[in-house]
Amino acid sequence: MKADLYICDDTFKYNGFDSVADVKRKLSDFLIMLDEIRKYNEENSLYLVKENFGKTVVFGDKKTINDIVSDYESSTLTYGKDVLTLFMGIFKHCKNSQVSLNDMKEYLAMEDDKNCSAILVLNPLNGYQEHIQVLSSVGGWLRFRRYFLAKYPGDEEFFLSESEKYFPNLRIHEYTKDTLGDVLASHHKKIVAYLSVLNDCLIMEFNASGSRDFVSFLKKFAGDHQLEGASFEGTKDNKFNFIFPDGTEAYCEPHLKMFTDDSGNRNQHCRIHFKKPSGNEVVVYVGCICGHM
């Protein structure tokens, strides 16, 4: 899906109370988000009203972005190289635009299965603090992309290709291409929600729990995240063995359970089988997304 992304210069204006460190932290988050977005240049177009942006005062010293960029040595000492890198990168990688903030807001409602829009902000945009299409960090970027993946899942190949981008802490086995079709049309919103929990929370929370009992941990994990279920199959079977491209041999008996589909119909089963995290693993290996193995 193609995304048109509009950087809102109004939200870069100094808010009157942030310290230099506060602004630099926000700029750092914004830079990390832009770096993630630019990994997929063909699917994302960045727009900026460059004239307005250059005239914007970001810090409390009343210097404009143009002032900061034009005095490289002094600005590097004062603000750090990353700040200069961000500002110069925004000018370089964004297409010039004359779109107003009101136009940007209107564009948010214009979408289909091939196109969507978002506003990129440094400080909160009044009235849009919780809007899924207003982004300031990688976390916001992933929520935005996952939202539209859940809304427009496409076919199995498209869904898995997009999942590879927007669930960076998951490795989904290619076998899933053969089983996903049984549940994608009926469970695509729930699958995205459950994969989000696996990606964002499983390893961190399991490590923090200090638990050696993964069965008990899974029950608590499901309850904490309002999942319909999570457990082991209960019987050892070779069908749960998967070998991933990186050479990892993963036994994927543990699984998240769905008993209802996206419409709330009962007895509509879907399962996501994955490997129990171990050692220093930083990704979750997902063996299968299916109705039942």
Rank of each mutant, 00 (worst) to 15 (best):
D4S: 13
D10C: 13
K13C: 07
Y14M: 12
D18N: 15
S19K: 08
V20G: 05
L31I: 10
N41S: 13
F53T: 06
V58Q: 08
K63S: 12
T64L: 11
I65N: 08
N66D: 14
V69C: 11
V69I: 15
D71K: 14
E73F: 11
K92M: 05
H93W: 12
V99M: 15
S100W: 13
L101M: 14
L108W: 02
D112T: 10
K114P: 00
G127H: 03
H131F: 04
V134F: 04
P153L: 02
G154H: 01
E156N: 08
S161Y: 12
S163M: 01
I172E: 00
D182G: 01
S186Y: 06
L195Y: 06
S196M: 13
I203R: 06
M204S: 15
M204T: 14
E205V: 08
F214L: 09
H225T: 05
L227A: 10
E228F: 12
G229N: 12
S231H: 10
F232T: 11
T235Y: 11
T235W: 11
N241M: 15
D246G: 12
E249S: 11
Y251I: 00
P254K: 05
L256R: 03
D261C: 08
D261G: 09
G264I: 00
N265Q: 13
C270R: 02
I272D: 02
P277T: 05
G291N: 12
